[in-house]
Amino acid sequence: MTKANRGARASRAGATPYLYLAPAVVLFTLFVAAPIGYTAYLSLRRVKFSGLGLGKKSRTEIFVGLDNYRAALADGEFWDGWVRVLGYAAMVLTLMLGLALLFALLLDSARVRLPRFSRIAIFLPYAVPGVVATLLWGFLYPPSMSPIHAGLHAVGVDGVDLLSPSTIVFSMVNVAVWGGTGFNMLVLYTQLRAVPRDYYEAARIDGAGELAIALRIKVPMLAPALVLTTVFSIIATMQVFTEPTTLRSISNSVSSTWSPLMNVYGDAFVTGDLYSASATSLVIALIALVPSLGFLRLVRRRAFGEER
Protein backbone atom coordinates (compact mmCIF):
# COMPACT_ATOMS: atom_id res chain seq x y z
CA MET A 1 0.00 0.00 0.00
CA THR A 2 1.15 3.51 -0.76
CA LYS A 3 1.41 6.39 1.66
CA ALA A 4 -1.84 8.22 1.91
CA ASN A 5 -3.18 11.44 3.30
CA ARG A 6 -5.63 11.62 6.18
CA GLY A 7 -8.78 11.46 4.11
CA ALA A 8 -7.67 8.40 2.18
CA ARG A 9 -6.61 6.67 5.38
CA ALA A 10 -10.08 7.05 6.87
CA SER A 11 -11.68 5.44 3.87
CA ARG A 12 -9.07 2.69 3.83
CA ALA A 13 -9.79 1.93 7.50
CA GLY A 14 -13.43 1.76 6.45
CA ALA A 15 -12.77 -1.17 4.16
CA THR A 16 -10.28 -2.94 6.44
CA PRO A 17 -12.69 -4.68 8.84
CA TYR A 18 -14.73 -6.04 5.94
CA LEU A 19 -11.52 -7.34 4.37
CA TYR A 20 -10.55 -9.08 7.63
CA LEU A 21 -14.02 -10.56 8.03
CA ALA A 22 -14.24 -11.72 4.42
CA PRO A 23 -12.70 -15.20 4.92
CA ALA A 24 -15.02 -15.96 7.85
CA VAL A 25 -18.08 -14.64 6.02
CA VAL A 26 -17.26 -16.56 2.83
CA LEU A 27 -16.68 -19.80 4.76
CA PHE A 28 -19.88 -19.21 6.75
CA THR A 29 -21.84 -18.75 3.54
CA LEU A 30 -20.38 -21.84 1.89
CA PHE A 31 -20.29 -24.25 4.81
CA VAL A 32 -23.08 -23.09 7.14
CA ALA A 33 -25.67 -20.97 5.34
CA ALA A 34 -25.68 -22.84 2.02
CA PRO A 35 -25.92 -26.31 3.63
CA ILE A 36 -28.79 -25.18 5.88
CA GLY A 37 -30.60 -23.73 2.89
CA TYR A 38 -29.94 -26.83 0.83
CA THR A 39 -31.21 -29.09 3.62
CA ALA A 40 -34.37 -27.02 3.94
CA TYR A 41 -34.85 -27.23 0.17
CA LEU A 42 -34.30 -30.99 0.02
CA SER A 43 -36.57 -31.57 3.00
CA LEU A 44 -39.52 -30.28 0.96
CA ARG A 45 -38.86 -32.55 -2.02
CA ARG A 46 -38.94 -36.18 -2.96
CA VAL A 47 -38.07 -38.37 -5.92
CA LYS A 48 -40.96 -39.64 -7.94
CA PHE A 49 -40.55 -42.69 -10.11
CA SER A 50 -42.66 -43.10 -13.20
CA GLY A 51 -43.14 -46.23 -15.24
CA LEU A 52 -40.92 -49.06 -14.08
CA GLY A 53 -38.55 -46.68 -12.36
CA LEU A 54 -35.75 -47.63 -14.70
CA GLY A 55 -33.57 -45.20 -16.59
CA LYS A 56 -32.82 -41.58 -15.87
CA LYS A 57 -35.99 -40.06 -17.28
CA SER A 58 -38.30 -42.03 -15.01
CA ARG A 59 -36.80 -40.37 -11.96
CA THR A 60 -38.06 -36.85 -11.27
CA GLU A 61 -37.77 -34.69 -8.19
CA ILE A 62 -41.03 -33.13 -7.07
CA PHE A 63 -42.15 -30.68 -4.40
CA VAL A 64 -44.02 -32.45 -1.63
CA GLY A 65 -44.47 -29.74 0.99
CA LEU A 66 -44.24 -31.02 4.52
CA ASP A 67 -44.72 -34.70 3.67
CA ASN A 68 -41.18 -35.63 4.68
CA TYR A 69 -41.64 -33.93 8.04
CA ARG A 70 -44.93 -35.78 8.56
CA ALA A 71 -43.20 -39.05 7.73
CA ALA A 72 -40.28 -38.26 10.04
CA LEU A 73 -42.58 -37.34 12.91
CA ALA A 74 -44.72 -40.43 12.36
CA ASP A 75 -41.72 -42.76 12.50
CA GLY A 76 -41.95 -44.63 15.80
CA GLU A 77 -38.30 -45.66 15.75
CA PHE A 78 -37.27 -42.00 15.52
CA TRP A 79 -39.17 -41.20 18.72
CA ASP A 80 -37.84 -44.30 20.44
CA GLY A 81 -34.43 -42.93 19.57
CA TRP A 82 -35.34 -39.61 21.18
CA VAL A 83 -36.52 -41.32 24.35
CA ARG A 84 -33.20 -43.17 24.57
CA VAL A 85 -31.18 -40.04 23.83
CA LEU A 86 -33.11 -37.82 26.25
CA GLY A 87 -32.54 -40.31 29.05
CA TYR A 88 -28.90 -40.54 28.05
CA ALA A 89 -28.54 -36.76 27.82
CA ALA A 90 -30.17 -36.18 31.21
CA MET A 91 -27.74 -38.58 32.87
CA VAL A 92 -24.68 -37.24 31.02
CA LEU A 93 -25.50 -33.60 31.73
CA THR A 94 -26.12 -34.17 35.43
CA LEU A 95 -23.12 -36.39 36.05
CA MET A 96 -20.62 -34.69 33.75
CA LEU A 97 -21.39 -31.10 34.74
CA GLY A 98 -21.89 -32.06 38.39
CA LEU A 99 -18.49 -33.73 38.52
CA ALA A 100 -16.87 -30.92 36.54
CA LEU A 101 -18.23 -28.35 39.00
CA LEU A 102 -17.21 -30.45 42.01
CA PHE A 103 -13.66 -30.98 40.70
CA ALA A 104 -13.26 -27.32 39.72
CA LEU A 105 -14.37 -26.15 43.18
CA LEU A 106 -12.09 -28.66 44.91
CA LEU A 107 -9.12 -27.66 42.77
CA ASP A 108 -9.78 -24.02 43.53
CA SER A 109 -9.88 -24.54 47.29
CA ALA A 110 -6.35 -24.05 48.50
CA ARG A 111 -6.33 -27.09 50.74
CA VAL A 112 -5.82 -29.86 48.22
CA ARG A 113 -2.76 -32.05 47.73
CA LEU A 114 -1.38 -32.83 44.26
CA PRO A 115 -3.74 -30.40 42.47
CA ARG A 116 -1.58 -30.33 39.33
CA PHE A 117 -1.57 -34.09 38.97
CA SER A 118 -5.33 -34.35 39.48
CA ARG A 119 -6.05 -31.52 37.09
CA ILE A 120 -3.95 -32.99 34.30
CA ALA A 121 -5.23 -36.52 34.87
CA ILE A 122 -8.89 -35.46 34.82
CA PHE A 123 -8.33 -33.35 31.70
CA LEU A 124 -6.47 -36.16 29.93
CA PRO A 125 -9.54 -37.94 28.43
CA TYR A 126 -10.16 -34.78 26.40
CA ALA A 127 -7.17 -35.91 24.32
CA VAL A 128 -8.88 -39.21 23.55
CA PRO A 129 -11.16 -39.25 20.47
CA GLY A 130 -14.71 -40.50 21.05
CA VAL A 131 -14.05 -43.53 18.88
CA VAL A 132 -10.99 -44.50 20.90
CA ALA A 133 -12.72 -43.76 24.24
CA THR A 134 -15.61 -46.04 23.27
CA LEU A 135 -13.16 -48.64 22.09
CA LEU A 136 -11.15 -48.56 25.34
CA TRP A 137 -14.23 -48.81 27.55
CA GLY A 138 -15.71 -51.29 25.10
CA PHE A 139 -12.80 -53.60 25.80
CA LEU A 140 -13.20 -53.03 29.54
CA TYR A 141 -16.91 -53.95 29.58
CA PRO A 142 -16.98 -57.63 28.50
CA PRO A 143 -16.06 -60.00 31.34
CA SER A 144 -13.30 -61.75 29.39
CA MET A 145 -10.68 -59.02 29.76
CA SER A 146 -12.19 -56.69 32.25
CA PRO A 147 -10.78 -55.46 35.53
CA ILE A 148 -14.22 -53.88 36.15
CA HIS A 149 -15.72 -57.30 36.69
CA ALA A 150 -12.89 -58.26 38.98
CA GLY A 151 -13.67 -55.11 40.96
CA LEU A 152 -17.40 -55.84 41.02
CA HIS A 153 -16.66 -59.41 42.04
CA ALA A 154 -14.57 -58.14 44.93
CA VAL A 155 -17.52 -56.20 46.33
CA GLY A 156 -19.84 -59.17 45.82
CA VAL A 157 -21.55 -58.21 42.59
CA ASP A 158 -21.44 -60.87 39.93
CA GLY A 159 -22.90 -61.53 36.54
CA VAL A 160 -23.61 -57.94 35.51
CA ASP A 161 -23.64 -57.70 31.73
CA LEU A 162 -22.54 -54.16 30.96
CA LEU A 163 -23.40 -54.55 27.29
CA SER A 164 -26.96 -55.92 27.58
CA PRO A 165 -29.86 -53.94 26.09
CA SER A 166 -30.91 -52.71 29.53
CA THR A 167 -27.47 -51.62 30.73
CA ILE A 168 -25.83 -50.38 27.54
CA VAL A 169 -27.13 -46.85 28.00
CA PHE A 170 -25.26 -46.59 31.32
CA SER A 171 -22.12 -47.87 29.64
CA MET A 172 -22.53 -45.16 27.04
CA VAL A 173 -23.16 -42.49 29.68
CA ASN A 174 -19.94 -43.58 31.35
CA VAL A 175 -17.95 -43.07 28.14
CA ALA A 176 -19.41 -39.57 27.67
CA VAL A 177 -18.88 -38.56 31.30
CA TRP A 178 -15.33 -39.89 31.21
CA GLY A 179 -14.55 -37.98 28.01
CA GLY A 180 -16.32 -34.71 28.81
CA THR A 181 -15.79 -33.97 32.49
CA GLY A 182 -12.21 -32.72 32.13
CA PHE A 183 -12.94 -30.13 29.48
CA ASN A 184 -15.87 -28.67 31.40
CA MET A 185 -13.86 -28.73 34.60
CA LEU A 186 -11.15 -26.72 32.88
CA VAL A 187 -13.61 -24.08 31.66
CA LEU A 188 -15.09 -23.68 35.15
CA TYR A 189 -11.72 -23.80 36.89
CA THR A 190 -10.21 -21.10 34.65
CA GLN A 191 -13.22 -18.95 35.39
CA LEU A 192 -12.72 -19.45 39.12
CA ARG A 193 -9.05 -18.50 38.93
CA ALA A 194 -10.03 -15.17 37.40
CA VAL A 195 -11.93 -14.18 40.55
CA PRO A 196 -9.83 -11.92 42.80
CA ARG A 197 -8.80 -13.80 45.95
CA ASP A 198 -9.68 -10.95 48.34
CA TYR A 199 -13.30 -11.60 47.48
CA TYR A 200 -13.10 -14.74 49.59
CA GLU A 201 -10.96 -13.16 52.30
CA ALA A 202 -13.79 -10.79 53.14
CA ALA A 203 -16.18 -13.72 53.48
CA ARG A 204 -13.69 -15.64 55.64
CA ILE A 205 -13.32 -12.70 57.98
CA ASP A 206 -17.09 -12.70 58.28
CA GLY A 207 -16.80 -16.31 59.42
CA ALA A 208 -17.90 -18.13 56.30
CA GLY A 209 -16.57 -21.68 55.91
CA GLU A 210 -15.09 -23.12 52.71
CA LEU A 211 -18.37 -24.82 51.83
CA ALA A 212 -20.38 -21.63 52.31
CA ILE A 213 -17.88 -19.72 50.19
CA ALA A 214 -18.11 -22.35 47.46
CA LEU A 215 -21.90 -22.43 47.40
CA ARG A 216 -22.71 -18.78 48.07
CA ILE A 217 -19.91 -17.00 46.21
CA LYS A 218 -18.16 -19.29 43.76
CA VAL A 219 -21.15 -21.07 42.24
CA PRO A 220 -23.05 -17.83 41.50
CA MET A 221 -19.88 -16.36 39.97
CA LEU A 222 -19.63 -19.40 37.74
CA ALA A 223 -23.15 -18.87 36.41
CA PRO A 224 -22.11 -17.56 32.96
CA ALA A 225 -19.59 -20.37 32.46
CA LEU A 226 -22.13 -22.94 33.68
CA VAL A 227 -24.70 -21.64 31.20
CA LEU A 228 -22.15 -21.88 28.40
CA THR A 229 -21.02 -25.40 29.24
CA THR A 230 -24.61 -26.57 29.72
CA VAL A 231 -25.79 -25.23 26.37
CA PHE A 232 -22.83 -26.76 24.53
CA SER A 233 -23.34 -30.05 26.33
CA ILE A 234 -27.05 -30.13 25.47
CA ILE A 235 -26.29 -29.60 21.79
CA ALA A 236 -23.52 -32.20 21.82
CA THR A 237 -25.41 -34.93 23.69
CA MET A 238 -28.54 -34.53 21.54
CA GLN A 239 -26.55 -35.45 18.45
CA VAL A 240 -24.66 -38.35 19.92
CA PHE A 241 -23.41 -40.52 17.09
CA THR A 242 -19.79 -41.63 17.45
CA GLU A 243 -20.16 -43.61 20.67
CA PRO A 244 -23.24 -45.69 19.78
CA THR A 245 -21.90 -46.24 16.25
CA THR A 246 -18.61 -47.54 17.61
CA LEU A 247 -20.31 -49.64 20.30
CA ARG A 248 -22.34 -51.38 17.60
CA SER A 249 -19.23 -53.21 16.51
CA ILE A 250 -18.75 -54.51 20.05
CA SER A 251 -22.31 -55.21 21.14
CA ASN A 252 -25.54 -56.28 19.49
CA SER A 253 -27.50 -54.22 22.00
CA VAL A 254 -27.17 -51.04 19.94
CA SER A 255 -29.54 -50.84 16.99
CA SER A 256 -28.67 -48.97 13.81
CA THR A 257 -31.26 -46.37 14.83
CA TRP A 258 -30.24 -46.07 18.47
CA SER A 259 -29.93 -42.27 18.29
CA PRO A 260 -31.86 -39.88 16.00
CA LEU A 261 -28.64 -38.89 14.26
CA MET A 262 -27.95 -42.51 13.36
CA ASN A 263 -31.40 -42.42 11.74
CA VAL A 264 -30.28 -39.52 9.57
CA TYR A 265 -27.07 -41.26 8.62
CA GLY A 266 -28.95 -44.42 7.72
CA ASP A 267 -31.46 -42.52 5.61
CA ALA A 268 -28.81 -40.51 3.80
CA PHE A 269 -26.11 -43.08 3.16
CA VAL A 270 -27.54 -46.55 3.63
CA THR A 271 -30.97 -46.26 2.02
CA GLY A 272 -30.01 -43.15 0.05
CA ASP A 273 -33.14 -41.22 1.00
CA LEU A 274 -31.66 -37.72 1.24
CA TYR A 275 -35.07 -36.09 1.49
CA SER A 276 -36.07 -37.91 4.66
CA ALA A 277 -32.57 -37.40 6.04
CA SER A 278 -32.86 -33.64 5.48
CA ALA A 279 -36.25 -33.37 7.13
CA THR A 280 -35.14 -35.52 10.06
CA SER A 281 -31.94 -33.56 10.60
CA LEU A 282 -33.85 -30.27 10.73
CA VAL A 283 -36.23 -31.78 13.26
CA ILE A 284 -33.22 -32.84 15.36
CA ALA A 285 -31.74 -29.35 15.10
CA LEU A 286 -34.97 -27.75 16.26
CA ILE A 287 -35.40 -30.20 19.12
CA ALA A 288 -31.80 -29.57 20.22
CA LEU A 289 -32.24 -25.81 19.96
CA VAL A 290 -35.41 -25.60 22.06
CA PRO A 291 -33.91 -26.75 25.36
CA SER A 292 -30.68 -24.80 24.88
CA LEU A 293 -32.45 -21.55 23.97
CA GLY A 294 -34.98 -22.13 26.73
CA PHE A 295 -32.18 -22.75 29.19
CA LEU A 296 -30.32 -19.62 28.07
CA ARG A 297 -33.42 -17.51 28.54
CA LEU A 298 -34.32 -19.00 31.89
CA VAL A 299 -30.85 -18.52 33.32
CA ARG A 300 -30.43 -15.08 31.88
CA ARG A 301 -33.51 -13.99 33.77
CA ARG A 302 -32.45 -15.63 37.03
CA ALA A 303 -28.72 -15.06 37.09
CA PHE A 304 -28.16 -11.89 35.17
CA GLY A 305 -31.48 -10.17 35.82
CA GLU A 306 -30.41 -9.09 39.28
CA GLU A 307 -27.26 -7.39 38.07
CA ARG A 308 -29.06 -5.09 35.72
Binding site: P35, I36, Y38, A285
Partner: peptide, 8 residues
Protein backbone atom coordinates in the same frame (compact mmCIF):
# COMPACT_ATOMS: atom_id res chain seq x y z
CA UNK B 1 -25.84 -28.75 15.35
CA UNK B 2 -23.29 -30.32 13.02
CA UNK B 3 -25.88 -32.89 11.99
CA UNK B 4 -27.76 -30.30 9.95
CA UNK B 5 -24.54 -29.41 8.17
CA UNK B 6 -22.74 -32.68 7.57
CA UNK B 7 -25.08 -34.29 5.04
CA UNK B 8 -25.71 -31.20 2.85
Amino acid sequence: PSVVLAVP
